[in-house]
Nucleic acid binder design. Structure first.
Lengths: 152, 152
DNA sequence: CCGGATCCGTTTCGATACTG
DNA sequence: CAGTATCGAAACGGATCCGG
């Protein structure tokens, strides 16, 4: 299915389709995860992820996510060479989706996620999501540390 | 990213990756949606969906979803020609993911989802998901009708 | 008719090399 | 650091064919 835009199939206005259009391609969602949980903000940060995304794919997906208003791109104030990406409100609202996907994956696919984090996500889901927002609002863009530990 | 299996990237055991492996390709999730919300159970039912999936792609995805234990395939007792697909427990557990994706899509992408359904999903999320399970357990495989109306 | 399998042109992906 | 350019490999998807 890919991520193409001229595909004739894309006419359905099912909300699930709208979501798949945004990140049904696999890479986009990983980028959002990196931003949301891992404190990655720069082009190079994403490249260093364990999934080894190629530079051209990364550039393409960043562009698409920006066009969709899920992330925003801005030059670093202190160092003009650097570019920082951040989640917009729309992007932050993907937190519940991410959380449910992570929980499902952890339940069925034998992953390396810390059970503590998963428990936190399931037993206190709403608070967990609220904290993601809070941390973001506070401008603390570092990796998740306190109660929800590295979501890897 | 597609759905390929020999990709070198697939080594991360991040639970999100596990989930993306399952249905990060776009079509798979639509099939699950058809099963979960639209009462579609047969090969032809999926073909008739508004997204116009090709027969070869459909066959491939059904096989993959079955291999992953998300759906199960069985011949109809009354008519040996027919094949019925159904969600397994693992597949039913995708309900929260689907719901969050639908809610997000409906909030941001101007879809044709009935506001009533969306409200039901957000304001009474847990009950909504519980009802999906209940309906399924009761053997009522028809399209969703009562409180959550056509999810399109 | 139902549930696919096969063929085949087109599109997209993705690894590497290269550039500002 | 933050991307383009290139190019072979893979996936898509429409049409058609086939066994039951």
């Amino acid at each position: 299915m890919a991520v193409g835009k001229k595909s004739a199939r894309r006419r359905s206005r099912c909300p699930l389709n709208a979501t798949l259009e945004a990140f049904g391609d696999g890479w986009s969602l990983l980028i959002v995860r990196d931003l949301m949980f891992k404190g990655r903000t720069m082009f190079k940060d994403f490249l260093d992820g364990e999934e080894r995304i190629a530079t051209n794919i990364l550039a393409d997906r960043l562009k698409k996510l920006e066009a969709l208003g899920i992330i925003a791109r801005e030059r670093d104030a202190s160092d003009a060479r650097r570019v920082r990406y951040r989640l917009t409100e729309k992007g932050l609202d993907l937190a519940p989706v991410l959380v449910e996907m992570i929980v499902w994956g952890a339940r069925y696919e034998d992953t390396d996620a810390p059970p503590r984090t998963i428990r936190c996500m399931t037993e206190d889901r709403d608070r967990f999501i609220a904290e993601i927002r809070k941390r973001w609002a506070a401008g603390e863009r570092g990796a998740v540390r306190s109660s929800p530990k590295s979501t890897s």
